[in-house]
Amino acid sequence: MSNVYQNIAGQIGEMSKSHVKVATYILENQTTVPFLTVGKLAKMAGVSDATVVRFATSLGYSGYPEMQQYMQSSVQQQLTTTDRLKMSQKVYNRGNSGVYEVFQDDIANIKSTMEKLDEAEFYKAVECLLQARRVYVIANRSAISLGVFLQYYLQIVLNNVEMLQSLEASSEKLYNLSEEDVVIGISFSRYTKSTVQMFSFAKEKNAKTIAITDNLLSPLIPHADIPLTVSSQMPSFIDSFVAPLSLINALIMFVGKEKQEDIQDRLEVLEDIWSHFDVFQRGKME
């Protein structure tokens, strides 16, 4: 079932009219469809959302998310940033409320993430972070934005969190990893090689590993003790980081709930420091 397009083409002759519409649109737009939500694919193919879901299950997939994973896997490594820019020109138009379609796609990513979230794994990640001697966050390229946010707030909560980026600058820290440490790897297609390499090494050193990535076909997953998958698809040259950031918010908040007294003491000290150095703007802006 790994060749999803052959699977679709091989069964198109036995499909209902509405399913043929979906199949035809997918086969004619193989580089665009993997990044479409259920609603957007339904709109493009001229069918209902339910028809798209039934189409996926009729092919033997558990649902649209699984079929989408296979479609993305077959095309993502081949697409350049320029290719993805061209996709956005086909999907998002300046007229016809195009800007609202971007918002809707972000909302759809959050809904998809909520539906497939494994709560047991999420709370296991929270417990691992609470028990860790040290926490390391690995992220590169665009995912740095997520890594910096996660490291900044977890450091306030736990006071033992570091950001790892380049292999050259992080090798000494990786050398000292042990089973008492937690390493969080953040990467989305087209997965950064250095992130995968460092995350894999952390697993070899028996550190507890948490992957924040887009699907179970991600190269981070084989090295993850705790996989946390989030939807980030968007037919554009950028990934949608709305759902990943929402998941990170939840992690920080639930870790923070367990460390409330520690945070309060730490924040009081930080407030004194911020006040001493006059960090924040006071009064009204002129």
Rank of each mutant, 00 (worst) to 15 (best):
A132V: 04
T51C: 11
F277R: 14
S194A: 06
Q264V: 06
V52M: 14
D106W: 13
K173Q: 06
S112H: 05
Q68N: 13
A120S: 08
F35H: 15
I12E: 01
Q131V: 01
L251P: 10
V230P: 03
Q68L: 14
I156T: 03
Q260C: 00
D214Y: 11
N29A: 07
E258W: 02
E168S: 09
Q151L: 03
V53N: 07
R94A: 11
Q264L: 04
Q30Y: 05
G147H: 03
Y64I: 03
S166N: 08
L85S: 15
S194P: 00
S166K: 07
F237I: 09
S97Y: 09
L270F: 08
V99S: 10
A23V: 04
N206E: 15
Y153F: 07
K259Y: 04
N160Y: 01
Y5M: 08
M44V: 06
I186R: 00
D225P: 07
Y70E: 11
I107V: 09
V52T: 14
A132F: 04
H19Q: 01
M163F: 12
Q197V: 10
G95E: 08
I107A: 03
M163Q: 09
V99K: 12
K43F: 07
V182R: 04
L216E: 10
T213P: 04
D83L: 15
P34W: 13
K203H: 05
L59T: 02
H276P: 05
E258Q: 10
Y152M: 06
Q104G: 07
Y25R: 10
P34Q: 11
F122D: 12
R134E: 15
E168L: 06
V38A: 08
I156G: 01
T213N: 07
S112V: 02
K193R: 06
R84F: 14
H223S: 07
N215A: 03
K193N: 04
N96I: 12
P235F: 13
S189T: 07
